[in-house]
Amino acid sequence: MKTSVREGRGGVQILDLKGKITIGSGDVQLRETINKLVDEGKKNILINMQDVTTIDSSGIGELVGCYTSVTNKGGKLRLLHLPPKINDVLTVTQLITVFDVYESEEEAVGSFAG
């Protein structure tokens, strides 16, 4: 998995993920990237999932872990451009309602302001 971070309006951190978030490949990396942002005091995080090709239960677990650690630090973690199959795996484990998911980056970034 490749990660890169951009800064959007209002200091929102946009994390573009590319590739696989699977066991032994990207799962730990995701957590480390998020923890680093949180440690730097950057608490509004938008994960762009558009180019994530595969996710497994470990990747899903990491997403949940990131959600918890960001939320516990008083931050917000939201998802952008969720591919349909990832939407499905979040849905069957009843996690889809946990995450705020956006289809437009503009709207997603704006949502942190409120």
Partner: peptide, 18 residues
Amino acid sequence: DPLAPENRFKTSGRGIFY
């Protein structure tokens, strides 16, 4: 059961369910 409320936010335990 990964769907039980107390397990909802766990970082593991979903593989067999999938």
